[in-house]
Every structure is written in structure tokens, then in C-alpha cells.
Design a protein around this nucleic acid. Structure first.
Lengths: 143, 143
DNA sequence: TTAAATGCAAACAATTTGCAAAACC
DNA sequence: GGTTTTGCAAATTGTTTGCATTTAA
């Protein structure tokens, strides 16, 4: 786990250099915190976790940084019906279970869907590729 | 088309009575407007369309009403990564294509996924049922 | 040294809420 | 008539922006 985060951070720094993006302590910490997060935190939640270690970090830097990371494709916004955005570090294709009670977002993989072709009719509508499944229900803690 | 909207409105009124919800002109108009909408309007867009016919309708009534309808299960929020919520009248299971350029949301049906079982591992995580697929890409107008 | 990133404060956007008046049943 | 819903205004919440200062390269 430790190792894989280190690897992710290395990749991240490398990608920063490639994109002429400066590597700042704030960016590293924000990326790391999101990389180790098992939930799918909001900007505010991330900020709360980070100020403990980095007291001067401002919430707007978190927002700005998440926006930048997202544009770079290094993190993803999770699709929900909430107004607050949730984020995660991009990794292998996966999907989300959302508990309707506690709003927890849980990752799962579903190769069957990843490998399936979209219905033919959708070809006429444009070029669509990135499939994300959101499944609503109740998590085991809330059952 | 006309007929099916009328039918939906009838069902809606019936459901209002069943749920001890008062049938007000605002509620009927909001429901009707959403029922005929081919896009997936936000509260503000709906309000703009409605004030033409109902000049006294306030935006907060639209928000409140959409919230109530949503709780009743008569309409759904569409899952997106945007901050603004998009709505649609609930009908047969379907999924969404989202154009990354113009943000248009397009419905499509995908029985293969509707009928597929979730991966076994998800059973341990809770009880999840309502599958919604969101596919990102570029619509034909933006290609 | 110089352009980009940060922090602060203020602006903005989306949504919610308290309350008195109006409307439904 | 009693209770819910509305419209208004104001408050909240989530997010973005302008600008002077700091910092990475």
C-alpha cells in the first residue's frame, strides 16, 4: 500500500513535469491525501484532513488544485446526484455503489460492462466511450 | 405524445392524492413541463420556461417542488459531475450519454445491463439495485 | 528572474429556509 | 377551517475569482 502510493506520487510528479506544471508542496499533499483516501472525499473534507499537517493550506487552493488535477486527467469527479463534488484518483476502470442512506460511495469492478459494446443505436448519437455505472442501494452498515 | 403526457399527468394527480399531497397549479405545470421536456432541465431552466405561462411562479417553489417530486419517486435527479442538478420524469429504465463539450444529456436504453446481475462481490457490500450507466463522449453535433 | 501558484477576501452560483399570505381539501 | 403550499426575502452552502505576495524552476 505504502509502496503503491509512492509509485502514484512519482507518476504524478513525472506528469507534472511533462505538463509544465509546478510541483508544489500543496499539490503533493493534496494528491497524496486523495491517493490514500478510501472514501471519495469532497474538497472540504480533503481540506479538513490536510490542514492538520499543513495549517496554512487554504480551501480555495484545494478547489483550484482539484480542478487542475481533473483537467490533467489525474483525478476524476465522481458522478452523483449531490450538489457537492466527490473526487478520486484515476485508476483502473471501475464503478460506484452509492448508499442512499449514508451516501457512502463504494468502488467495484464490473468487467462484463467494461467489455460490453454500447447498443448500436448510440453510434448515431455521437462518439461515446467512458462508461461509468452508478448503482444505488443500501450499504451493509445501513441495512 | 399528447396522450401519453396526459396519462402521465393523470397518474401524477392520482399519486398526489394517494400521498396526501395537494394538487396545485404550480405542481401540475412543473410536472407537465418536465414531462414534455426532451432535455434534462435544471430547476432554473424549468423555471424560465414556466414563468412565461405562469408569471408569478417563483424559483424556490420550483426547487421545493422538484425536491418533493423526487422524494415521491415521480422524478429523478440525473447523476452528473456538475454542480447543477438535472431532472427528468421517471419512466422505463434507461441510461445517459453526456457530451463532454456541450454537456447535453441523451437517454438510451441498454437492456443487456438492465438484465445483468451485479458482480458477486457486491453482494457482501450491501443491497444495491438501481443501475444507472453514464457514458461520456462527444455528441454528433459537437464532433 | 520570471511566470505560475498560493492565500486572502470578496464575489458568485445553486439551493435552502423562515415566515406571512394565499390556496387546497 | 385547518393545514399545506406559495412567494418573498434573506440565509446557507459550494465554488470561483481578482489581486498582491510568495515560490518553483
Amino acid at each position: 500500500m505504502q509502496l503503491s502510493v509512492k509509485k502514484l506520487v512519482d507518476e504524478f510528479q513525472h506528469a507534472c513535469r511533462e505538463n509544465d506544471m509546478r510541483i508544489t508542496p500543496q499539490r503533493i499533499e493534496i494528491f497524496k491525501e486523495l491517493a490514500v483516501a478510501v472514501d471519495h472525499p469532497t474538497a472540504e473534507v480533503l481540506h479538513k484532513r490536510l490542514v492538520v499537517k499543513m495549517p496554512t493550506l487554504s480551501l480555495d487552493t484545494v478547489y483550484r488544485t482539484l480542478g487542475t488535477f481533473s483537467e490533467m486527467g489525474f483525478i476524476d469527479k465522481v458522478e452523483t446526484t449531490e450538489s457537492q463534488a466527490h473526487f478520486e484518483v484515476s485508476h483502473m476502470p471501475h464503478h460506484h455503489l452509492i448508499c442512499e442512506k449514508c451516501k457512502k460511495i463504494i468502488d467495484f469492478v464490473w468487467q462484463q460492462v467494461d467489455e460490453a459494446d454500447l447498443p448500436d443505436e448510440t453510434r448515431l448519437l455521437g462518439r461515446f466511450e467512458k462508461k461509468n455505472v452508478v448503482v444505488y442501494g443500501v450499504c451493509k452498515n445501513c441495512l
